[in-house]
Amino acid sequence: MASYNTNEFRGGLKIMIDGDPCSIIENEFVKPGKGQAFNRVKIRNLKTGRVIERTYKSGESVEAADVMDTDLQFLYSDGEFWHFMDTETYDQHAADATAVGDAVKWLKEQDTCEITLWNGTPLVVTPPNFVILTVTDTDPGVRGDTSGGGGKPATLETGAVVRVPLFIEIGDALKIDTRTGEYVARARD
């Protein structure tokens, strides 16, 4: 079984804690001048998303988590699972609702997402930073009003609701920043 020594700890390293795969966010070396050295780490549990803290006696070995990030194309959802494909190997992976999480709002078929795989199973789905989505419902547009002042809600093809400028109409394709959930611009064809 692969393992890491605390000397190898750094941000992004994937280790097992209490049976769950985790990712190190921050690693602090703590040592009194006349005492024991420790590694105090902040870690994200990749299954629950929770951030926890642990301290290791320096020099200890910790089991590595078989976790990798890979780019996969979103194919479709059957309501229970979201299916993704590696466009080079055609390998398919099914992510459950927990793995998809909030990304569900931005998933559009054929878009490429970053999938964190643990022992080959999707653990976290990260949508592209920017997605282009079509407006399916919003109040009628106010033509010519490009001031950007005010705004209104618009429902997108994925079901996500974002705040958009008044001139946006049903059928417009919008560029959305998935990290903030904010409207960026109208997409040009």
Binding site: Q36, R54, K57, E60
Partner: peptide, 21 residues
Amino acid sequence: HDPVGLTPDDRDAWLDVVMTH
């Protein structure tokens, strides 16, 4: 949490943990 790898016989190291943390 208890530091990983620290054994109960190393009393001074446990005191170091309380001191530093």
